[in-house]
Computed example of a mutant assay.
Amino acid sequence: MAEKPKLHYTRGRGKMESIRWLLAAAGVEVYLEKLRNDGSLLFQQVPMVEIDGMKMVQTRAILCYIAGKYNLYGKDLKERAWIDMYVEGTTDLMGMIMALPFQAADVKEKNIALITERATTRYFPVYEKVLKDHGHDFLVGNKLSKADVSLLENILGLEELKPDALAKFPLLQSFKARMSNIPSIKKFLQPGSAKKPLIQEKDIPSVIAIFH
């Protein structure tokens, strides 16, 4: 039986959350461990994932490895290129969402409006059109990939800020429903899973201290 991957990060979402999402979609259970300070962190950076005898850092490298290992990365180079392009778009959006808890209230309010505008005019129309043009259930090759997982993570993340974010995107609404009912993802969305809640204001000082 393969050893479970070990995750090294804080107890919050941050950059590890996309890794948790992808492992969950692949149906992989993980060991959750605390941060390490024994010199094993390459570049002194987290997230770090111990998997297959490696201590991997750099979020994109980890996600690509997991996607390849668990057949969530397309069937050929062209499909992988499309998957990567779609993921980069959602990564840009998620980066803005992740920064919100660390912003002052007035700045946060303005940025929520900006994020919503970007999502609904720049990003979501792309994915809505992809689903319309090829008529398949998934973004690439009609098979679950890390692009689908990343998009669902972003949709749900934005809906926490703006519940009606998908109001003008019927195909993305259907996509969200389908993806959320995939058994491994449905399990991840239940209380008590490895999925992390939004960072709380009381936790911000300790998170800042860790990453400085």
Rank of each mutant, 00 (worst) to 15 (best):
D84V: 09
D92Q: 02
I66W: 01
V57M: 07
L93G: 00
K75M: 07
L63V: 09
Q45S: 04
C64F: 10
Q45D: 07
M56A: 07
L77S: 13
L42H: 12
M48N: 11
M56Y: 07
R60A: 14
K69V: 01
M56D: 08
I83P: 07
N71Q: 14
L41A: 14
R80W: 05
I83S: 06
G95I: 01
Y65A: 09
T90H: 05
K78I: 15
A61Y: 06
L93V: 08
I62K: 10
Y86F: 10
G74N: 05
G74W: 05
I83L: 02
M54P: 09
T90K: 03
V49Q: 02
D52Q: 06
K75F: 03
E50R: 11
E79F: 02
N71I: 05
D76Y: 00
L72M: 05
I62P: 04
Y65T: 08
Y70E: 09
V57I: 13
M94D: 03
F43H: 11
Q44H: 13
D92M: 03
Y73S: 06
D84M: 04
D84E: 13
D52I: 12
K78D: 13
L63H: 04
A61K: 09
R60S: 12
M96I: 05
T91N: 09
S40T: 15
Q45N: 10
E50P: 03
T91Q: 10
L77I: 02
G68E: 12
Y65D: 09
P47T: 15
E88A: 08
V57Q: 08
M48Q: 11
F43M: 12
K69I: 01
L93Q: 02
G95C: 07
G95W: 04
I83R: 00
L93K: 01
M85C: 11
A67Y: 04
F43E: 12
L63C: 10
K78P: 00
L42C: 14
V46N: 10
T91G: 01
A81E: 07
K69M: 06
Y86R: 07
I66Q: 04
K78A: 12
L77G: 12
G74F: 08
R80E: 13
V49L: 06
L93R: 00
G95T: 01
Q58K: 05
E79V: 00
Q58P: 02
L41E: 14
D84I: 08
V46L: 14
L42A: 15
D52C: 06
E79K: 00
L63K: 08
A61V: 15
M96C: 03
